[in-house]
Nucleic acid binder design. Structure first.
Length: 465
DNA sequence: TTTTGAGTTGTTCGA
DNA sequence: GTCGAACAACTCAAA
């Protein structure tokens, strides 16, 4: 065919892009298109920070396209209308796009495919949801068997090189990419750094990952999630890097690091598959018997949690890291989520939505899976009696309070032994370390021991159902 | 069909 | 301070 549209969605990359490769194989001219749906942009789930990151990534993609003799057409509107218009203008015979398995995306793509020639190509995951099934064809609902099945599939081949040239049809007008807000958040995750960061991580930190990933005060995680969220890196590029690292791993500890990181990639695909097979998890608990937990849902406590003034330093640091940077350490996510759901007894869906509004990497599948795991309502959930103790977690994974003090400067002068429980300082100490509890830094809004017992009691609903 | 082993990330209590 | 058990059964996956 002469012309095809490459419809860009969650694959903002030229390297290892199977949809783009397929389009190039089949057509002489490719028109790269991004459709900005005003309804999606206005949705409370969209998240301003993530939009800013998206626009920065689009700008970078545009630059990459320019260097290959192409360009990016951005249009606003309903995808089916925009694409129909572009087919008229260009005479394109087919639209190629990377398959996206979320409920919203599937609905959107069905709408488009109803009237337009759309080809979906895998690439969002290493193994798409329909490829990892039990022998009887049913989906897995427990991670470990899922991961065994995932690993038993052929390992992905070498990622595709970015095409050197992408011939484009001439002169199709588009709009300018909107300016990213000036909060500078995208600067922390520059698009141009994505591949380099993956390479660096998979040559160094990945070997200590099994241990260091839990430390909030260390830079031990890969911090690649925003890139994977928008397909600036492909899952296959990540898995390939892990496979190479495994080959070079010098000892069992290093191999364990690689395995642990690969497992995280599999977790991502597990939750993508769960949301694909069980789209109702978006609205309700996966486990039916835990749909009637008597939440307290106190609005003032919810505000305190969001703003990082619960009086528990680790929780507050986590929440401030989120609002300030659009990213949160995974260990911190669990601690903050556990505190909201268990200590405050606030519906996990409130937390899920708040995270979606602030996370650069906010993804409906992973975010939902994580929240339901913490709440104990999901597939493969943590036992209900597993309630994180914010003080113990802090001591264990931020032993000197470095993480806490970075985001909660009120505690800057507090000695290590009190940094995770500053309310235990005497009045004299509070004065000495210039941190008056209730004045400079809030007193705990709940007493953990009491809140824990309250949560365990509330979770007994399942016995009544 | 039945049986069996296992299940991301914790905390608390008592010896 | 350290260690093991209890926390609660239940469901899933696989033999």
């Amino acid at each position: 065919m002469d012309t095809a549209i490459w419809w860009v969605r969650r694959d903002l990359r030229l390297g290892d892009n199977q949809a783009l490769a397929e389009a190039l194989l089949r057509a002489r001219h490719i028109l790269p298109v991004f459709v900005l749906d005003p309804q999606v942009v206005a949705s409370p789930w969209a998240g301003e920070k993530r939009l800013g990151f998206l626009f920065a990534a689009l700008r970078s993609l545009e630059a990459d396209l320019h260097s290959r003799g192409s360009y990016l057409v951005l249009r606003r509107g309903k995808p089916e209308q925009v694409l129909a218009g572009l087919i008229q203008e260009t005479g394109a015979e087919r639209i190629f796009a990377e398959a996206d398995h979320s409920p919203y995306a599937r609905h959107r793509d069905e709408q488009v495919a109803r009237s337009l020639p759309l080809s979906l190509v895998d690439g969002l995951t290493v193994n798409p949801p329909h490829a990892v099934l039990k022998p009887d064809g049913a989906p897995y609902t427990v991670f470990t068997p899922f991961s065994r099945a995932w690993r038993s599939l052929p390992f992905p081949g070498r990622p595709l090189e970015a095409p050197r040239e992408i011939p484009a049809p001439a002169g199709i007008p588009g709009e300018n990419i909107p300016d990213a807000p000036k909060h500078g958040l995208a600067d922390m995750f520059p698009t141009s750094e994505a591949v380099r960061r993956l390479e660096r991580f998979s040559k160094e930190k990945i070997f200590q990952y099994a241990e260091s990933r839990n430390r909030m005060d260390l830079d031990g995680t890969s911090a690649l999630s925003p890139y994977l969220r928008f397909g600036i890196l492909s899952a296959r590029q990540a898995a390939w890097a892990a496979q190479e690292a495994e080959f070079f791993a010098p000892d069992p500890t290093s191999r364990q690091g690689v395995e642990t990181w690969l497992n995280e990639l599999i977790w991502r695909e597990f939750y993508i598959a769960i949301l694909y097979h069980f789209p109702n998890v978006r609205m309700e608990s996966f486990r039916a018997e835990l749909r009637n937990i008597p939440w307290r849902n106190d609005p003032a406590e919810f505000e305190a949690w969001k703003e990082g003034r619960t009086g528990y330093p680790v929780v507050d640091a986590a929440m401030r890291q989120l609002s300030q940077t659009g990213w949160m350490h995974n260990r911190a996510r669990m601690i903050a989520a556990s505190f909201l759901v268990k200590d405050l007894l606030i519906d996990w869906r409130w937390g899920e939505k708040h995270f979606m509004q602030h996370l650069l990497d906010g993804d409906p599948a992973a975010n939902n899976g994580g929240w339901q795991w913490t709440a104990g309502t999901g597939t493969d959930a943590a036992p209900y009696f597993r309630v994180f103790n914010p003080v113990l977690q802090g001591r264990k994974f931020d032993p000197l309070g470095v993480y806490v003090k970075h985001y909660v400067p009120e505690l800057a002068n507090v000695p290590d032994e009190y940094v995770h429980e500053p309310w235990k300082m005497s009045i004299e100490q509070q004065r000495q370390f210039r941190c008056m509890i209730g004045v400079d830094y809030p007193a705990p809004i709940v007493e953990h021991v009491v809140a824990r017992a309250r949560a365990l009691d509330a979770y007994k609903v399942k016995e009544k159902v």
